[in-house]
Computed example of a mutant assay.
Amino acid sequence: MGGAERSARKRRQQQSAAARAVTQARGGGGPSRKTIVSVVAVVVLAAVVIGGVIWTNASKNETEGTTITPQTASAALDTADERQGATVVSGKADAKVKLDIWADFLCPYCAQLQQKYGTQIEDQIKAGNVQVTYHMIPLLNNRSDPAGYSLDSANASLCAADQGKFTPFHDSLFASQPEEGKRGYDKAQLIKLGQDLGISAPEFATCVNGGTYNQQLDDALTEVSKAPNFQGTPTVMHNGQVINWTQDGWLTNLVNQAG
């Protein structure tokens, strides 16, 4: 190979190396800017999805391992014989106003009824003016995750009634109501609430764990669902007539009219 040919080849090699250097400097030798942006977007999206799943699961299960706050102010209302089948009757037999209330411990509107009028109702019961028959029905039994909280809580409230603790148990569950579509409270948490309210009889835990009143509650739901004036939960009735509990002063008006 002559010197001229070697010189030409060397120049070509130098030019090729220079071209590669320019290409690499411009980003042509590695991933394109578009590719890098796409990869970053995928990573960010994955992080958002994973974070959303973690947050959703945490939110869904926020009742897990928690203690239901006991409400004890209304404990004096109860008697050990107030449970009548799948209902609980609170108040004197000669009360001039007699109400029936159908409710579900998972129902948010039932919690609103309790929040707005629960104390007034209980005060009228104490005064001897009102008697209430509580029908705690498992209407939303499939609306918790896992399903079954409506029935478990309704059964537990009847078990608490057998121990003379229905009203504080009832009030406590509404005061700490789980969100519909999410986890309710399990049987161990319901038993713990009863114990925190002063229930010491071992029969209470047996009643809760065994679902003693489950069949009666299911039968009551089936029966009331056939009634033409049943409007879901909550339904409030006086002498068989549905009461508009969202109307201000409805309870005071009933008491005054019965006067």
Rank of each mutant, 00 (worst) to 15 (best):
K116M: 05
Y149S: 02
L45D: 14
R83V: 09
A147G: 01
R12T: 11
E82L: 12
V224K: 00
T222F: 01
F230D: 08
R6A: 15
G184L: 09
A154T: 13
L217M: 10
G91W: 09
A154K: 01
D248N: 13
G148F: 06
A156N: 06
E82C: 08
Q163L: 06
P178A: 11
K60D: 15
A258E: 06
T119N: 07
I36W: 09
I50V: 15
A25Q: 12
V132L: 08
D219T: 15
V40Y: 02
T66C: 04
L158M: 08
S38Q: 13
N61M: 04
Q112P: 00
S7P: 05
F174W: 03
A95R: 10
Q177T: 03
Q241E: 12
S172N: 05
L173D: 03
K226H: 12
W102S: 10
A93K: 15
C110V: 01
S153Q: 07
F230Y: 09
Y213S: 09
A21C: 08
K226Q: 15
T167W: 02
Q71H: 10
E62I: 14
V43S: 01
G210I: 13
M1P: 01
S172I: 10
A175M: 03
P202N: 11
S38G: 11
C107V: 03
E5Y: 11
Y109K: 00
L193V: 08
D123G: 10
T72P: 00
A80R: 13
E180V: 01
S225L: 12
K165L: 09
A86I: 14
Q131V: 11
H170S: 07
Q131D: 15
V242F: 00
Q24A: 13
V242E: 06
V224L: 04
A154M: 07
G249T: 15
Q112V: 12
L197T: 07
R6F: 13
